[in-house]
Computed example of a mutant assay.
Amino acid sequence: MQVKKVTLHLIEQNLLAPFVTSTGKVDTRESILVEAEDVDGVVGWGEVVAFSSPWYTEETIKTCWHVLEDFLVPRMLTQEYEHPEQLQNDFQIVKRNKMAKASIDMAIWDLYSKKQGISLSEAIGGTRNFIDSGVVVSIDSIDRMLRKIEEHVESGYKRIKIKIKPGQDYELLAQIRHKFPTLPLMVDANSAYTLQDTKKLKALDEFHLMMIEQPLAEDDIFDHAALQKELTTPVCLDESITSSEDARKAVEMGSCKVINIKIGRVGGITEAIRIHDICRSHQIPVWCGGMLETGISRAHNIALASLPNFTIPGDISASSRYWSRDVINPKVFVENGRIAVPDGPGIGFEVDREWIQKITKQKKVIY
């Protein structure tokens, strides 16, 4: 593969409903869609899933645009690749900037699988024709959260994730469990707690949660190991895991019993597969997290979640949960709590160029 040009599309869309976590609220979503075209005219698509402000990681839309335009894309255009895995070594000269790197990695994987005439799922070793779908309920009043959970249960979602924070945890979960005693339920703290809150977190064991995701600092592995020893509830690491080395260390230290894999957070599909393989060898289940993505990134997530060790329903839900109109056709649909894994070449969806053009704020073609 030799890419001859890359087009960056900075788009902006309004979420159908605000997304609220312990760190803030998101109601308008900027994204960078990365379009890579090779010398044969084959196009692959990726997406920058960073946010406009650095509340999730240190990267933002603006920093990713800069790193892509000035460093990663120019470097890639001078190279020829036989396989997407080669990007990892080629990009080592640029430190971190995982989400910027991931967007190109995704585009090259899409391009590669299209040139092979196979689906992205097949190209990476996927084994499933359907994946189970979970859904996230953001922080709100208890009554509204209970109504939202009921809607999702009726829609067939396989598990529910609740955002929590100090002061909105035990009582909230008590009311949810009272109404939904057997619901597959997990919580996400987005680093809202410290080891001083161990007693509060231990109290959540009574609710028989699937896991508590990232309770402590976003860059921590050590304290999570101490916390996991005190809890019956499995600890799941998210922000702490940015590479396969992070995953190896966390598993060996006993910092968690589950890992959430996000393509953007770990630098691309290649690294996501490595983390999957490490966890599988240690019998640590994984699942695919969401980043309020467009359908392009959602399609990549579907393919990733078709790998065999993704045994927990991920944050991969229907397009209609987030957007009045998605950037792909057809939209991602959830039926009976499951999503079909596309079997067409690449990501298996057509990109809606007409809609992308309407919502584009800035565009850059790099040769």
Rank of each mutant, 00 (worst) to 15 (best):
V39H: 04
H224W: 06
K262D: 10
L204T: 03
E213P: 06
P84M: 05
H66F: 14
I259E: 13
Q168M: 15
I241N: 07
F349N: 04
V6W: 04
A100K: 08
E335F: 00
H208C: 14
I11S: 02
I312K: 02
L183D: 00
I139M: 15
D140S: 13
L185S: 14
H9D: 02
T7W: 01
L72Q: 09
T194Y: 04
S281A: 15
I312E: 01
M99W: 04
D343I: 14
S281I: 15
E239M: 10
E47A: 00
W45C: 01
C236Y: 03
T78G: 12
G264W: 06
D132W: 05
F19K: 09
L292H: 02
L15D: 00
P74Y: 00
K163L: 14
I328G: 05
G125K: 11
V20H: 12
G337A: 06
R274M: 07
W323L: 06
V153W: 01
S324H: 11
K95D: 08
K262C: 12
D238G: 04
D188P: 02
Q2L: 14
G41R: 06
F91P: 06
D132N: 07
V137N: 04
D205W: 10
L16W: 10
I149F: 07
A217F: 09
A340N: 00
R353K: 10
D343P: 00
E230L: 12
C288A: 15
I108Y: 09
L173A: 08
T194V: 08
D219Q: 14
V26F: 06
L16G: 12
L231A: 08
E151C: 11
S53K: 12
A247C: 10
S141R: 03
M106E: 13
K199P: 05
P18G: 13
A305L: 05
V42D: 06
I176H: 07
C256M: 07
E171C: 09
L120A: 01
F333D: 12
G295F: 04
K163F: 15
H152D: 13
P54I: 09
T233Y: 01
L227N: 03
A318V: 14
E218Y: 08
A189R: 08
G156E: 05
W355G: 10
Q228Y: 02
S113Q: 11
N329K: 13
M210V: 10
T57F: 09
G264M: 13
K165M: 15
G346K: 00
V135R: 04
E122P: 08
K364M: 10
D110R: 03
L304I: 03
R128K: 15
R144A: 07
I328Y: 01
T7M: 00
T21W: 13
L87P: 08
Y157G: 02
K101N: 03
D315G: 04
V136H: 06
G289P: 03
C64D: 13
V351H: 02
L195A: 09
F19Y: 15
